[in-house]
């Protein structure tokens, strides 16, 4: 069995590394993928505030990219986008397009 022995972990169930959930990638759960359409985007950041997974990345107050390592593909960003600047595609579709 892998993992540390009881002598190597902090006592009391304490987790010392704040935010280490980043080591666990939830992107593999995704069956639908949001695709950003830059031409339509007005950088209102609604997608950023509604994302449950902090997977909409911002830079200097603008939309930067989706973090597909964590995006679970729920689609709330696309549903709330006022400019149709986010399109949901199935992962299969999106992967095929990636391969092109």
């Amino acid at each position: 069995m892998s993992g540390e022995s009881w002598k190597e972990i902090p006592i009391g169930g304490v987790i010392e590394k704040a935010g280490n959930s980043k080591e666990y990638k939830t992107g593999s759960w995704r069956s639908n993928r949001p695709i950003h359409v830059p031409d339509k985007c007005i950088h209102c950041m609604i997608c950023w505030i509604v994302c449950p997974d902090c997977a909409v990345k911002a830079k200097d107050g603008n939309f930067s990219h989706f973090d597909y390592d964590y995006c679970k593909g729920c689609g709330n960003c696309a549903a709330r986008c006022p400019k149709d600047a986010i399109v949901m595609k199935t992962e299969l579709e999106a992967q095929k397009e990636d391969e092109k």
């Binding site: 935010g19 280490n20 959930s21 980043k22 080591e23 666990y24 990638k25 939830t26 759960w29 995704r30 950088h43 209102c44 950041m45 609604i46 950023w48 505030i49 449950p52 997974d53 902090c54 997977a55 911002a58 200097d60 107050g61 603008n62 973090d67 390592d69 964590y70 679970k72 593909g73 729920c74 689609g75 709330n76």
Partner: peptide, 23 residues
């Protein structure tokens, strides 16, 4: 929202709530 998006996230990615969870 543009200003808020410059703030640090204090709930990290990698949590295992359902896709689309409101929590």
């Amino acid at each position: 929202l543009k200003e808020l998006s410059k703030q640090e996230e204090r709930l990290e990615s990698g949590h295992r709530l359902c896709p689309g969870c409101a929590l």
